[in-house]
Design a protein around this nucleic acid. Structure first.
Lengths: 232, 232
DNA sequence: TAGTGGTCTAGACCACTCA
DNA sequence: GAGTGGTCTAGACCACTAG
């Protein structure tokens, strides 16, 4: 189990702080040579460190040391930009697409509307310190938000809801599942298909108990730490 | 990207219900042959399905189709046996060890005591339908639970706390992180080092606000779906 | 354009599981 | 004891990134 030894060796260097967040590792062929092994075995070690959340990979760009994860409280509705800044990180968001679509089966079930009802669909890509970390899809009931696309929908829907429509989140249902990235989602995150991911699904209600919208979030799994407190 | 095609082919069979939870796949060499490829490539596909949570592996035993995950509400303090039964599953717990130990740095920090303070440490392995799914370590402040080991500490600490000591959970802090299994933990779960895992850490308080204990849980990542509702 | 990571081949040996 | 999965070797070609 040579790959475990290699893994430990790299791990030690990370823990010792010799390699810090965002640092790029040497080329695979060079690492393989310096550990006297083949690329296949070396990649096994790297994949393990990726699974553990110590390293991440950018497609065809190489291996990097993972920065500290963002602490994320799904019960708390601070928006992404605020949350990131509060933790000393630099957030950025890109709008991938915003359109009105007939609700897919999944979206209809989450929003509790009939399939094919027209809903807003917003896709965004969010960055932490210029690293893409999450792809977010929102399905939104248009009934509560006429002309939503006339406002800022890129940075924080939470803020737009509040400032433009007087709608405030008051209840949220969430699910968290471990999975992997595929196709487009992987590509936006500069990842290859199969990269480990955290999937977070939320359904949000306003102060009157109305179902407002839902999020489907695919996070690079090393970039997020779910953290919350519950009083029973 | 042959491995994606193989992945889809297997995926379809699972979704079509041809292969259901717990079903064992044919030998790797046979699968490789039937897809006209080598074991290395075939294993790449299987690993992807593992990352996605569709398949799991038991060390040297082969590949299996993942059963539905257990829905787990970290804010709700139903004990494991009750939660499993409520979802139509058969739970079982094994005591791996129970001892008094000087608190490790991590344990001391979680329990908010001085390092090396003596605490209880209980390690357990829990099964769903005879599949090992989670290794749980509890660190417990002995102050609140004299002679704890005289009672049932295998099945449900929650019940023992309540019935023997009148202690009821009233607040819980939790963290969820995606990681991988290593060494002993992997072995107990019949997994190899590096298998994807969900790590759940909880700190629990009683009805008077006293810090009671903490859990460190390593779940097979396909066996758990975190699910909760929060009112803000 | 040079070098990199992504993918794939065709083997091999070993320790272990299971019948 | 046969067959399995776990690990490893020593290559190869390609599409892409980075300079």
């Amino acid at each position: 189990m040579q790959y475990l030894k290699i893994m430990e060796a790299i791990n030690e260097q990370i823990d010792a702080g010799l390699l810090s967040g965002g640092h790029k590792l040497p080329a695979e062929r060079k690492l393989a040579e310096s550990f006297s092994t083949t690329r296949v075995t070396l990649r096994e070690s790297l994949a393990l460190l990726e699974a553990e959340g110590k390293l991440y990979r950018e497609d065809r760009r190489g291996w990097f040391v993972s920065p500290d994860p963002l602490r994320y409280d799904p019960t708390y509705t601070t928006d992404f930009p605020a949350m990131a800044k509060a933790q000393g990180r630099t957030p950025r968001s890109e709008l991938l697409s915003a359109k009105r679509v007939p609700a897919s089966r999944r979206a209809a079930s989450l929003l509790n509307v009939k399939p094919l009802t027209e809903v807003y669909r917003i896709d965004r890509l969010r960055f932490l310190d210029e690293r893409p970390v999450v792809v977010v899809t929102n399905f939104i009931s248009p009934r509560h938000f006429p002309d939503l696309f006339k406002h800022n929908i890129t940075d924080s829907l939470t803020s737009t809801y509040r400032e433009q429509y007087g709608v405030i989140y008051s209840k949220t249902q969430f699910r968290v599942r471990s999975t992997s990235l595929m196709a487009d989602t992987a590509h936006h995150l500069r990842a290859t298909s199969g990269t480990p991911a955290m999937f977070v699904e939320r359904i949000n209600y306003d102060q009157h108990g109305n179902l407002i919208d839902c999020d489907l979030e695919y996070w690079r799994h090393d970039a997020i730490l779910i953290e919350s407190t519950a009083t029973i």
